[in-house]
């Protein structure tokens, strides 16, 4: 069961592809692999911590102020992340900018709090958060890898091709973000369909 909770986020319901949630950070910070992975790790931290805490507080949270309490708890962890990146990884903070505070409104976190953590045990919520977070990190890193490779010809800042390489700058900008993620989504749908037709 725990394995199931963990792996669900890695393929079956991998965000942002399967649950089309948390699109904004996915689009905004994936112009480099570092940005994507950094965002993923920050989100995973908040997701796991808030899932666990909400699951612990499950019996005392009054249903009418439920959402407000969830938001306060999530926001607290987001501020922790904000402080930590500022103090120990300032370049990452500069790279992600306004999207660190915006982790608060990432629908994945509130969605998991509402749909899973507020109904399940602490241990299961922990694994659910970890799986979802890792799935999110993975997706962001892969998108970031592709966009960085095509958009600037580098991987994590290291140039791969010679000086004659002309990067497709479009990929690093907004249109590239939308189109890449649209294509990824279509590929996932295609794989699913093939699986279903084989069955």
């Amino acid at each position: 069961m725990l394995i199931n909770d963990f792996t669900r986020g890695l393929w079956e319901q991998i965000p942002p592809f399967r649950l089309v949630l948390g699109l904004c950070p996915t689009l905004a910070v994936t112009s480099t692999v570092t940005g994507g992975a950094g965002m993923g790790i920050a989100t995973t931290f908040v997701l796991v911590c808030s899932n666990v805490l909400i699951s612990v507080l499950r019996p005392v949270i009054h249903p009418k102020v439920r959402i407000a309490v969830f938001i306060v708890i999530i926001a607290t962890f987001v501020v922790f992340v904000e402080m930590a990146t500022q103090a120990w990884a300032y370049p990452v903070y500069q790279l992600l900018g306004i999207f660190i505070p915006l982790i608060v409104v990432n629908c994945i976190i509130l969605g998991r709090a509402e749909a899973f953590a507020s109904k399940h045990t602490v241990v299961r919520s922990f694994f659910d958060g970890l799986g979802m977070g890792m799935g999110f990190t993975l997706s962001l890193a892969v998108i970031g890898l592709l966009r960085e490779l095509l958009g600037s010809g580098t991987i994590a800042g290291r140039a791969l091709f010679g000086p004659s390489f002309l990067p497709c700058t479009l990929m690093a900008k907004a249109p590239g973000a939308f189109i890449t993620i649209g294509c990824f989504l279509a590929i996932m749908n295609g794989i699913d369909e093939r699986k279903r037709s084989i069955k």
Binding site: V20, P175, A177, G182, I187, E193
Partner: peptide, 14 residues
């Protein structure tokens, strides 16, 4: 088929 729904929406947004 795979492009229907959100996939094509994102590409149009691009």
């Amino acid at each position: 088929r795979p492009f229907r729904g959100t996939a094509i929406t994102l590409i149009i947004a691009g």
